[in-house]
Amino acid sequence: MSIVSVFRAIIYRELRFLKRMMPEYMSLAFQSTLFALSIIGIAMSVSGVSGLVAKFSQIFNISGKVSLTDIIAAALAFSGLLSLTADCVGSVSQVIIYEANVIDILHLIAQSTYLYLYYMTYALIYGLLSGIVSTLYVLVLLVVGLGAYGAYVYLMLLPAYIVTGIALSYYTLVVTLPLTYIVKMRRYWAISQVLVPVLIAGSGIFIPVSLVPLFLRVISYTSPLPEVCTILQEMFFKAIQSPIIFLMFTAVFVIYIALSTYISYKTEKLVRRGL
């Protein structure tokens, strides 16, 4: 069956799931917002508004004037990455293991199409949809806080979210497929439970990377998050100082796609051989 039919089928299924899972997305948005605001709140309670602004400018190397609204908007924008990571890594890994081991839907897919085509298309579509749906609350909050300018900021960030969503989905494919088909892991929730906090902690979204243990940082650096985080920060403050980061991200993205294609193809061979 063609890639178009696989694409159409997955889009149909994901939109149906989305309809049923809206409360989960809302809860995810609420948690991410709460986390972002708590970080700002804690910092402010320790050093006051002026201290927070000074520290923030210092951390992100901002020379111009920064207001508290800017900081809150930035924190909310970065929180989109929390929501996006939790959604992409959690959903893609759980769906792959759940389909293979719990509901046994793999037969339905394997008798209809090629598995590598299915997995590659699924990661692309899920990353794309997640990039929009799991960060939609950022648009609402930015518009509330910054007015029309907030919408403009969100639209500027949206491509970064989408590309990150796709990269994270392929990254999850690379991690989850071997765990599902070679290690034959059954506790599918463990992947997202471990991976999501490690990736978020080591990427430098809210916690300075220097404070994170090296082991977690190393794991996080296998994902695209640290690069995306830097890109997002630089985009937000319109001060792109290291264009090389884009090059790094592109390279990482290409590696994920190449690796996930190879692993998906290997998975297909394993499944068809009945191993």
Binding site: Y12, R13, F17, H107, L108, T113
Partner: peptide, 23 residues
């Protein structure tokens, strides 16, 4: 007894399968 998405209805599962099969 299984082989379908539990949260989708039977109808939705069949439409998904039909699309996957190229309809």
């Amino acid at each position: 007894s299984k082989g379908f998405y539990f949260t989708l209805s039977g109808y939705e599962n069949l439409v998904f399968y039909g699309l996957l099969k190229g309809l």
